[in-house]
Simulated scan of single mutants.
Amino acid sequence: MRQSCILAALLVSSGACLAQSSVELYGIADLGLRATSGLSAKNTPATPGTATAVSSGVDNTSRWGFKGQESLGGGWKALFRLEGGINADTGTSAKSDRMFDRLAWAGLDSPYGTLALGRQTNLLSDALIPVDPLGKRDASFNPNINIAGLSNTAFGTHAFGRQYGPSGYADNFYRLDNTVKYTGNLGPWQARAAYSFGEVPGDAAASSSHGVALAYQRPDWTVSGATTQFRSREGMPLDAWTIGAALKQGAWQFKANAARNVAVTGTDKSVHQRVLSAGLSRALGQSLLVTTAWYAVRREATGLPDDGFDRGFLFVEETLAPRTTAYLEADYTVWRGDAAGLTASRPNDRHGTGLTLGLMQKF
């Protein structure tokens, strides 16, 4: 009830502000009918068998938000953005404890760059935008988002089991609270730097994060990378980096990326993760786009067998209108080591397949 009241107030206030400044309500509603074998409804390993579900956000994460800007003169602008995830299949918020779990920041844009303060994506995520083979589609199942970008490190026996940086969640550090981020552009170069305050009394380093990112962008090719260090509340480090490239040739586009992170999880204990990925996409005519991608994830943890998985994707997207896209998605996963795990003492299927027919609408 409280969130509904806040939402109503925001909608009313946005209508009043629209006449005075540039304020926009926007979002995505993405729903699909998904059939799986050897996977649960949350795309985790499952015992052999098939299942069918209505899934939200397979192509692009369902979300809603507000963004706005106001000119301050002399090339300066004030900016803000508030964005929350939606489970469109159930109508619930992606995070029950936050209305704007994805983004909540305000900042200044100037001839010298953009400075933003608040809850923002980490620099690994920013670096992946132009070079992820899937174009950051299928966020809940995309290894570059989950492993390279650190949005979900909880699966299997190799879970980190704690929070690094001020994300607010254990095993998810894709977005960080209390973040100051600077973005500057100079010709084809784009540089970013960010610091996230842990806000732990008496220990400035605890639960903090800092990093840098650099990209070189040309019309037909891009190179993009980032490195970031996160700290747990106990001061244990998580070091991560990612680097990738994209090349466009006519209707074809090739993308590849490599990423690695190492987390100290206890005394003489650590978890190492690495992701290699590559993909190819081709535009067919004015409205059809076909994208294929492959990801290899390998993990090592102190005292445990190595594990990981290989995962392939196929996306076929048809643009029906400027804001409406129909899509067909297929995926295939092979679990390595003991990554498949057990369900009620029964071994899970070592192979998982999924097929989704969906519709995405933007507003």
Rank of each mutant, 00 (worst) to 15 (best):
G75C: 03
G74N: 05
W76M: 04
L72V: 08
G65T: 07
G74K: 09
K42P: 01
G49F: 00
F66E: 05
L79G: 10
G49T: 09
R81E: 15
R63N: 14
A46P: 04
F80C: 07
T52V: 14
A53C: 07
A51D: 15
T61G: 13
P48W: 04
G65V: 02
G75T: 11
K42L: 04
A78N: 06
S71P: 13
L72Y: 01
T50N: 14
A46H: 00
G38A: 12
A41T: 15
A41Y: 08
A46S: 02
Q69L: 09
L39Q: 03
A78Y: 05
A53M: 13
L82R: 07
W64Y: 00
G75P: 05
W64C: 07
G68K: 10
V58M: 03
T47I: 12
L39C: 05
G68V: 08
A53N: 11
P48T: 13
R63F: 08
R81V: 11
K77D: 13
S71G: 15
L79D: 10
P45T: 15
A53G: 11
W76E: 00
R63I: 09
G57E: 06
S71K: 04
N43Y: 01
R63H: 12
T44D: 10
G38P: 06
Q69T: 14
R81K: 02
F66V: 02
K67Q: 11
G74Q: 11
L79K: 08
T44H: 11
R63Y: 03
D59N: 15
T47S: 14
G68T: 05
K77R: 14
L72R: 01
K77I: 02
G49S: 03
G68M: 06
S71E: 15
P45K: 13
A46E: 05
S55V: 05
T44Q: 11
A41E: 10
T61I: 10
G38S: 12
K67H: 00
F66H: 07
E83G: 02
G65R: 07
N43M: 10
V54E: 11
S55N: 12
F80M: 00
A41Q: 02
K67V: 05
G38Q: 07
E83M: 06
E83I: 06
T52G: 06
G65F: 07
L39P: 03
S40N: 12
F66Y: 01
G75L: 01
G38N: 06
L79R: 08
R63M: 13
G75R: 05
A51I: 01
N43Q: 12
F80L: 08
T61L: 08
K42F: 07
F66K: 01
N60V: 13
S40M: 12
P48Q: 11
S71F: 00
F80Y: 02
A53H: 14
G68H: 03
R63D: 11
S56M: 06
L39Y: 00
N60F: 12
K67S: 06
A53R: 13
S56D: 08
S40R: 09
W64H: 04
Q69M: 12
P48A: 12
N60C: 11
W64N: 01
S55Y: 00
G65K: 02
V54D: 10
D59V: 08
P45Y: 10
T47A: 13
